[in-house]
Design a protein around this nucleic acid. Structure first.
Length: 400
DNA sequence: AATTGCGGGCGCG
DNA sequence: CGCGCCCGCAATT
């Protein structure tokens, strides 16, 4: 990443966790700070040498998620989980999609799957794929460290990614399922004719895989973060942002919410493109790049914890839909589904984002998409989520 | 079929 | 000793 931006990024990120008190801890310290007053909102794209303190209730933190493709690394230390970056898979021909975007696929985490992946072809031009390794940490991959300590999860990142962002996990999954759907479709006897018909009607027809995915422009990871942040925090990256909001405190919601938060995001090092599935759920594909979307963005990078006398953090599991550690997923899903089941609105501002933000102070209150796969039994929500999924699968072409 | 975490083991500086 | 990395295993998803 760029130097200047980098430094700003570091500064800003640090301020997220530091804010006066703890700047000084290192993941390897024997004792980590106990008097944490501010915990951070989950960061999907941690970059540079940043540290974050998450709530131990934060699902994404619990799962050690990242939108970077991080694989487990054995550091022979069971107390500190270490992961290293796999980089990004690009097109060997350096092709661009019709709208000028580059191919930035998410490297498979599993070695075997990754090897298989590299034998596949570019979804856009059918050329060879190439794995762009991460060398952002002294020539070696960026490393992330996770450590659970009491009611917090400490995160530390070492190195600055020297490559574009890959698809998020959800994007990759969405692409896979779309691909699957497509191949299934292709398998039917009618299909060839159909496709040809469609092609002749629409002119050039992109590979189905090319749709969701790679909407990254060459400079994609330079787009203002608030934009991305907003979107991913809202509808699309439920997996990553999902339950983070459960510990939301009124104060954080009220104060950190507004312009200040937006500012925080805009200065955030998180730069990137917009998760595709998000687009799929929130409206017509392209609009995500619409500037107006930025207004939807207001995410807090951190949460201010009510600290009781003695510096003890009262971790009252928030009331409301987010309640207990179980994440109040059902309720969340209600929001999620209301978001996801919305018909694609042409007007971004009135789309799922604002609707959701209207219902809840933070987009992170949204439930994980995965909820639709598993722990979901509420009919309504299920329907909503399925709707979304179907929407994704079947409305893709129209979107183009 | 992939992801995730764990841990043994090896080589390097 | 720290680090990067390979490998296989097991539990989940």
């Amino acid at each position: 990443m760029l130097k200047g931006a980098d430094e700003a990024a570091v500064e800003q990120e640090n301020s997220a966790s530091q804010h006066g008190e703890m700047t000084s801890w290192d993941i390897n310290d024997i004792k980590l700070p106990q008097d944490v007053r501010q915990i951070d909102w989950f960061q999907e794209w941690p970059d540079s040498y940043v540290k974050h303190i998450y709530s131990s209730e934060d699902k994404n933190a619990q799962r050690h998620h990242s939108s970077w493709a991080m694989r487990n690394t054995n550091n022979h230390n069971s107390r500190i989980l270490k992961k290293s970056c796999l980089g990004v898979v690009v097109c060997g021909n350096d092709c661009s999609t019709s709208d000028g975007r580059k191919i930035y696929l998410r490297p498979a985490i599993c070695d075997k799957a990754r090897q298989k992946q590299q034998r596949k072809c570019c979804p856009n031009c059918n050329g060879p794929l190439k794995l762009l390794s991460c060398r952002g940490h002294g020539g070696y991959p960026v490393t992330n460290f996770w450590r659970h300590e009491g009611q917090f999860i400490f995160f530390q990142s070492k190195g600055a990614h020297d490559h574009p962002r890959p698809e998020t996990k959800l994007e990759a999954e969405a692409r896979r399922s779309i691909h699957k759907a497509h191949t299934a479709f292709s398998a039917s006897s009618i299909r060839l004719k159909r496709i040809q018909e469609i092609e002749s009607l629409t002119g050039a027809m992109p590979m189905p895989e090319a749709l969701p995915l790679l909407l990254s422009k060459p400079d994609a990871y330079m787009i203002p973060a608030n934009f991305r942040g907003h979107l991913s925090k809202s509808s699309q990256e439920p997996t990553l942002s999902s339950c983070s909001g459960q510990l939301l405190y009124p104060r954080a919601a009220g104060e950190d919410e507004g312009s200040g938060e937006a500012l925080t995001w805009s200065r955030s090092p998180s730069l990137g493109r917009i998760p595709s599935a998000e687009r799929l759920c929130s409206g017509p594909a392209v609009p995500c790049t619409a500037p107006s979307h930025q207004h939807c963005a207001h995410f807090s990078t951190q949460r201010v914890l009510p600290v009781t006398k003695g510096g003890h953090v009262s971790f009252r599991p928030n009331t409301g839909p987010l309640g207990d550690g179980s994440c109040g997923e059902k309720s969340l899903l209600t929001y999620s589904s209301s978001c996801l089941s919305l018909p694609p609105y042409p007007a971004p501002q009135s789309g799922p984002c604002s609707r959701v933000s209207g219902a809840q102070p933070h987009h992170q209150l949204l439930a994980p998409l995965r909820g639709s796969e598993g722990d979901m039994s509420e009919g309504g929500a299920q329907v909503g989520l399925n709707y979304c999924h179907n929407d994704m699968v079947f409305n893709l072409y129209p979107l183009r």
